[in-house]
Nucleic acid binder design. Structure first.
Length: 258
DNA sequence: CGAGTTTGACCTGCGC
DNA sequence: GCGCAGGTCAAACTCG
């Protein structure tokens, strides 16, 4: 399944028209809402604000596309037709992808596979969580913290960035103040330490470090939970277990390990 | 001038 | 107690 997602992502990336990327979040928001939670989930941070999140995927998709098309002055109408066709094709791929995933999730649930939580490595605060369906997800994380797990548990997020971009900045919707940077033993890339700008009222911290295995990935570890809203207005706002994501990335997909 | 970043010093926990 | 590594502090610096 992740291979399929990667393929769609690759196809989108290879598209010469960045505006097409605006539609992927519509599908990924569905995933975030539970359609695709089975351990790893993908969240896109590229999108524009969700206007009508309750509408069907199809209508959202088309409305957004035509909306962008109106503001996008293409002289060549054939090119626009080609874009629409390409867009439709990608939409169909995503629809199939979501359907397959739902089928798979249903199959896993029917087979009696338990939703699971487990600790990872020796870090007692780090939590890797798996939910088999949307109901489980919402039940477990309804208050921003999974039941039975410490409120200050860490949430680890992988952010895909341009490998040539050496900055350790992750725009996740909140405003952060960097208070330190350190080179750790197991990673030649420095680790940056951030506090929420609302500190000391909000004690959320995050650490950002480039992945050793894949330099195009930033490993972001959030600690604590925000007790306030975003610092920036509007935009797609998704609260995932205290890890808040806002759709303002250039071209980035996230894998959230919760 | 204020807010944010940099960076060396300092603190703390842990293993030996 | 000592050394190491991760985390934090805070003065200096940068930038808009």
């Amino acid at each position: 399944m992740l291979n399929q997602i990667d393929r769609v992502e690759r196809d989108l990336a290879s598209s010469s028209y960045g505006l097409l990327l605006n539609f992927l979040p519509l599908a990924f928001e569905r995933m975030e809402k539970g359609h695709l939670f089975n351990g790893n989930c993908l969240i896109d941070l590229n999108s524009n604000p969700m206007q009508n999140p309750d509408e069907s995927l199809n209508s959202e998709f088309e409305d957004n596309f035509t909306g962008h098309a109106r503001g996008f002055s293409l002289k060549d109408t054939e090119e626009l037709d080609r874009l629409i066709s390409e867009n439709k094709k990608l939409h169909d791929m995503l629809a199939t992808l979501i359907k397959n995933q739902n089928d798979w999730v249903q199959k896993q649930c029917n087979s009696g596979e338990e939703c699971s939580r487990k600790r990872k490595h020796d870090d007692s605060n780090f939590v890797e969580k798996k939910c088999c369906n949307q109901a489980c997800w919402e039940e477990c994380w309804s208050h921003g913290t999974p039941k039975g797990i410490k409120p200050n548990a860490s949430k680890k997020v992988l952010v895909r960035v341009d490998p040539s971009d050496m900055s350790l900045v992750v725009k996740d919707g909140y405003q952060w103040r960097k208070y330190g940077q350190k080179v750790t033993r197991d990673n030649p890339s420095p680790r940056a330490y951030y506090k929420c700008s609302f500190a000391p009222i909000c004690s959320v911290k995050k650490k950002v470090q480039r992945s050793v295995e894949d330099p195009s990935l930033l490993v972001v570890t959030y600690e604590g939970k925000h007790y306030h809203h975003y610092h920036h207005h509007s935009s797609l706002q998704s609260e995932t277990a205290g890890v808040s994501l806002q759709a303002r990335f250039p071209v980035t997909l996230l894998r959230v390990l919760i």
